[in-house]
Design a protein around this nucleic acid. Structure first.
Length: 1074
RNA sequence: GGACCGUUAGCUCAGUUGGCUAGAGCGCUCGCCUCACACGCGAGAGGUCACUGGUUCAAGUCCAGUACGGUCCA
């Protein structure tokens, strides 16, 4: 060891400011990554067996900027991606965005409407151009946000669900499913949104509690012998009634058998049918339905899903009395319109409701009206009540075993309930039983959803989306030609039949079905050109355009609808990797083989059904059973400070850029990771930043009529009462607009101080190291911490032992998605161990100790590496500085050099053989340090003042073993021997420690005997209570016989040491009193 | 109506198979501008683990129920 003068804080050190300023480093660090191209994924080639790791981003909707929920989602993905990249895996994080059909169309339409432009007036092409602009704008915002957060996606591969690659996948998937009989068109009741005029899938319908009414309407029997009373919440639908139903068990049923009623207004004679579905009247029932029921149910198959089922059972006619806008209409299947009924045609459903109730009331046919609270489906987009409406829609037969059964069989059998009888058995086939949920309770959510699944309505009456690749022709059977006629001759109405036509010879798929007994509808599905070229077809003269032109010439018209957004999202893990024809997009060659199945899908739980299920079905169907992902990790949902879901309409969503602005990206990330446990929800109280003064304040809250607690639209500056600002809630509701004088207040939250302070701590620990390591000092040194030659200090051995321990905990935590354990372990190791203990302990020795400088450099290097996945910016910024002061090698600690932290290898640390003893010794020493510090603090001893320790032999050994650490950390000057019988030094405070007495002198000039005695008395009482507790436990025979032997032994040991402590304290008190 | 989650310090949250004196961060109190960091250092106070009952030698932890809050599904 050569001695050196303290390192001169050279230019490098001087250049590092005292506090970490994220805004100055983040952009520059991002550039370093981009320039180096470290995020680019390289698929495996040849017989390369390097492990792979891949994630496809849940593509954010291009409707709006990302909020904290996205920040959480993407941070967790980035942690895993960066970690596996450091492990040396071939790593792909696929970025992209979702066109979000209905959601985007709605926001664009709203924006246009505010400018006075209507979608229908501007036309399809112009509207799509506007929507494309919107998409471009928000896609750019989203990518900017992800970059600002440090997401290490392979940006060169950024996809969009409507780009060329995804279009090909959608077209090919649709064609394949169509060809395989898994896509069909049918007249069904759909969830109709009369405002956006589109069908919605079941998942897009939100149930809301409505305080409405139950109307009791009298329907006269057609033989004039009386009437029946039906109860309904939707009187307007009575125009389409085609029966009245009664439960066969109802005592009145026999008398009414084979009778009919004359439907008022319409004068339609409709039968009384008997059906088990009907709830019998029971005024005393606790069940709302029975309580309000009359026992008679009006049956409207065209306007109620349950009535539809009843209609099927009793072969009732289906009469649709509404148009697509929800108004009463006689043009959509209602033919027996009486002149009386004509009065109601054209009314909106709300107007019709009042008018019909009034009509019944005027004629004495309204028996009663009662208040009634019930759930009503609402459109998740327009928020108006859904109208069950009969229309032609396209469906995917997800109830088919090839989809539903396959999705169920994918589940890891150890965490899902038994497969339903109709779902077959798991086999050795790829993917079966291989999909695992974390936390595992979500496996049941997934399972339960598939148990009750219905066919998936995929057509949407929108413009923004993937156009349905089907051309349709409807005509009388006799006009359709002999082949079609023959093909459908024996088929039932609505039963699809595949046709072998010239379109099929040219590569299309061709279906026909009778719509009625006399009309046939043909549908021709055209695959994308790239698939067409590869087909083995008998007529290969036509390319895609020619084929479509020919079909259209023959009178076919392309379906105007687009596909449900989730159809393209469901293909995301496939389409982004170039499926089905990667060779057409050369950059995607090899991706599927290397990276699908992806390693994990990270998402919030609300999307398990919508998305996870469909990706599983599609990926397995199109890739021979292969799963889209092995694991599904469901993370928490971030709520606001009042336990409310963050939503656009409440304006309580927080833009991650606001947090990055006040705290930095690393602080954002670290805090989010630190709060990720396996619970469902986390609360995030949010404050505002006054745009006038820059100070943080808690906004004034108001309660909305719906009971939500939100920031008042206008807020007053806390210290400038004349100035005001608007809240995001105010802007979201349109109550206020931000102006120059009254600007929008940005959000912040003191929750993120945790991460900001931590990043700053790392920054300063590094600054310390840079000022104390002399890089020219023995650069080729080799330090062996396991060597007993005294070349490494106790502190050095201990910190390496702790590094190894922490690494083990972190690796296990990340393997099990325990993100908070990862963050907490980092925090403890870096702050408590490295900074509070290690750095403090080495201060007196490091300047002259080249070995210690090498250890410190290595520890800092390792810290940057293990912290990098969660705090990539500060670690990358410090990386070159730490690399510059690395000297020598530490035996057993592998930290290979790297240009960038982002491409560095994860540390490998071999555990020291003596680690257990070293850590034990440290813990004992640390307890002694703590006891001395407490004593010092209670006497107000200045930090610089040294105290003298008088110790018995056992403590002398501990002090020697810990190599000066106790003296440094506790501010101890001299240590002198002291045995039980020795004369007591003057003004020395007794300190019972490990059952022996230690004396501390030099604290004060004069001892306050009363205070000393009181302190000891308190300690004695505490120890005595503990001793009694242990004694009682051991006196209990049940404990001694039943508890695990090691637990009992531990209790005995603890009793022993506590007794010794008690004795030592009592002896000290006696000595003090004499 | 069904399912799931939560209720632990003033606040936000940890607490793996039941077993040391129930932990952290913030806030609070006291003392420190101790030559990396006041976004800091040292010390401390603060909890009937929502409630009721049960299982057990032993319950924050397991079981049953209640209350309140939240989410998803119908």
């Amino acid at each position: 060891m050569t001695s050196t003068t303290p390192a001169d804080p050279g230019p490098l050190t001087a250049a590092i400011p005292k506090a970490y300023d994220p805004s100055e480093t983040e952009e520059e660090v991002t550039k370093r990554w981009t320039t180096a191209g470290v995020f680019a994924a390289e698929p495996r080639t040849g017989d390369d067996q390097t492990p792979t790791y891949s994630i496809v981003i849940p593509p954010p909707n291009v409707t709006a900027a990302l909020h904290l929920g996205h920040a959480l989602n993407n941070t967790l993905q980035d942690v895993l991606i960066r970690y596996h990249r450091m492990l040396g895996h071939r790593t792909l994080w696929m970025p992209g965005t979702d066109h979000a059909g209905i959601a985007t169309q709605t926001v664009v339409e709203k924006r246009l409407l505010s400018e006075g432009v209507k979608r229908l007036e501007m036309g399809r092409d112009a509207f799509l151009a506007k929507t494309q602009d919107w998409k471009d704008e928000y896609e750019a915002v989203i990518i900017e946000q992800l970059l600002a957060m440090g997401a290490s996606c392979d940006w060169e591969r950024t996809r969009f669900t409507m780009d060329e690659m995804c279009v090909t996948a959608v077209r090919h998937a649709f064609y394949t499913l169509f060809q395989d009989g898994l896509i069909y068109r049918g007249k069904r009741l759909v969830n109709w949104d009369p405002v956006t005029r589109t069908a919605l899938s079941d998942d897009e319908v939100e149930m809301e509690e409505i305080e409405g009414h139950m109307w009791y309407l009298r329907y006269p029997l057609s033989d004039g012998s009386g009437h029946v009373t039906v109860a309904t919440t939707r009187p307007e639908t009575m125009l389409g009634d085609t029966a009245v139903a009664i439960n066969p068990a109802d005592p009145r049923a026999r008398a009414l058998r084979n009778k009919s009623v004359l439907l008022p207004i319409v004068d339609r004679v409709i039968p009384i049918v008997e059906d088990d579905y009907v709830v019998m009247a029971d005024p005393d029932s606790s069940d709302g339905k029975a309580k309000y029921a009359t026992g008679f149910l009006k049956v409207t198959p065209a306007h109620d899903p349950n009535d539809w089922e009843i209609g099927l059972r009793h072969e009732l006619p289906v009469i649709n009395v509404m148009g697509p806008d929800g108004s009463i209409s006689s043009e959509h299947g209602w033919e027996d319109t009486s002149s009386e009924a004509q009065e109601f045609v054209g009314l909106s459903r709300e107007e019709a409701r009042s008018a019909i109730v009034a009509w019944f009331d005027e004629r004495g046919l309204l028996e009663e009206v009662r208040a009634y609270t019930h759930s009503v489906g609402h459109s998740y987009r327009s928020h108006v009540p859904i109208e069950p409406w009969l229309s032609d829609q396209w469906y995917v037969a997800v109830t088919d075993d090839r989809l539903r059964g396959s999705a169920l069989r994918a589940q890891n059998p150890t965490q899902s309930p038994a497969l339903p009888d109709d779902a077959g058995h798991r086999t050795d086939a790829p993917g079966d039983g291989a999909m695992t949920f974390h936390p595992d309770r979500y496996a049941r959510t997934y399972h339960a959803w598939h148990a009750g699944i219905r066919d998936w309505c995929i057509s949407r009456q929108l413009w923004w989306g993937h156009r349905i690749p089907v051309w349709v022709r409807l005509q009388p059977i006799e006009d359709a030609g002999p082949e079609i006629g023959a093909a459908v001759a024996d088929a039932a109405v609505d039963e699809p039949v595949f046709i072998e036509s010239r379109w099929v010879a040219a590569g299309a798929a061709h279906l026909a079905r009778k719509v009625t007994e006399t009309e046939v509808e043909e549908a021709v599905c055209v695959p994308p050109g790239s698939s067409l070229r590869r087909l083995d077809r008998t007529d290969s003269t036509m390319d895609e355009a020619a084929l479509i032109a020919a079909i259209e010439t023959d009178g076919f018209v392309q379906d105007p609808d687009v596909l449900d957004t989730w159809f393209s999202s469901g293909l995301w893990p496939l389409s982004t990797m170039g499926w089905p024809w990667p060779e057409d997009f050369p950059e995607t060659v090899g991706l599927l083989e290397s990276f699908n199945p992806t390693s994990v899908l990270m998402t919030a739980r609300e999307i398990i059904t919508l998305w996870v299920s469909r990706m599983t079905m599609f990926n397995r169907y199109f890739r021979q059973g292969q799963l889209p992902f092995d694991d599904v990790f469901i993370h928490a949902m971030i709520q606001d400070g009042h336990g409310q879901k963050m939503s656009k309409s409440l304006g309580n969503g927080v833009d991650p850029r606001d947090i990055i602005h006040t705290h930095g990206a690393d602080a954002l990330r670290f805090t989010l990771v630190q709060m990720t446990t396996d619970t469902q929800d986390v609360r995030m109280p949010v404050d505002l930043i006054c745009p006038h003064t820059g100070e943080m304040f808690t906004p004034e809250f108001i309660t909305t009529s719906a009971g939500h607690v939100v920031a008042a639209p206008t807020q007053t500056s806390p210290n400038e009462p004349t100035k005001s600002m608007v809240s995001a809630y105010g802007v979201a509701t349109g109550a206020v607009t931000a102006t120059t004088d009254v600007p929008l207040a940005r959000n912040t939250s003191s929750k993120f101080d945790l991460g900001r302070n931590f990043a700053n701590k790392v920054w300063n620990a590094t600054r310390f190291a840079l000022s104390r390591i002399d890089p020219g000092h023995a650069p080729s040194i080799t330090v062996d911490p396991s060597s007993a030659d005294g070349s490494t200090t106790f502190a050095d051995q201990w910190i390496i032992a702790r590094l190894a321990q922490s690494l083990g905990v972190i690796e296990e935590a990340l393997a099990n998605y325990q993100f908070n354990v990862y963050a907490d372990t980092l925090y403890d190791f870096i702050w408590r161990d490295v900074c509070d203990r290690y750095l403090e302990a080495v201060k007196p020795t490091i300047d002259g100790n080249a070995d210690q400088q090498a250890v410190l450099g290595a520890v800092l290097d390792a810290v940057l590496r293990i912290l990098h996945p969660v705090c990539p910016f500060v670690t990358e910024a410090l990386w070159p500085h730490v690399a510059a002061v690395r000297t020598g090698e530490i035996v057993g600690v592998a930290l290979p050099p790297s240009e960038l932290a982002a491409s560095a290898r994860w540390p490998v640390v071999e555990p020291l053989a003596s680690a257990g003893l070293v850590v034990d010794t440290f813990d004992r020493a640390d307890r002694l340090v703590g006891a001395i510090r407490t004593l010092r603090s209670s006497r107000n001893v200045k930090p610089k003042q040294r105290v003298t320790l008088h110790v018995p032999a056992s403590v002398r050994e501990l002090i020697a073993a810990s190599d000066g650490m106790i003296e440094t950390l506790a501010g101890v000057g001299d240590v002198v021997d002291f045995a039980a019988g020795d004369d007591r030094p003057p003004a020395a405070s007794p300190l019972p420690f490990e059952g022996v007495e230690v004396l501390v002198s030099g604290l004060v000039d004069e001892l306050d005997f009363d205070a000393e005695r009181a302190r000891l008395q308190k300690l004695i009482e505490a120890k005595a209570t503990q001793v009694r507790g242990f004694e009682q436990r051991l006196a209990n025979p049940g404990y001694v016989t039943n508890a695990k032997p090691e637990v009992v032994a531990e209790t005995r040991e603890r009793l022993e040491t506590t007794r010794n402590d008690l004795r030592a304290a009592e002896a000290a008190l006696t000595a003090l009193t004499n």
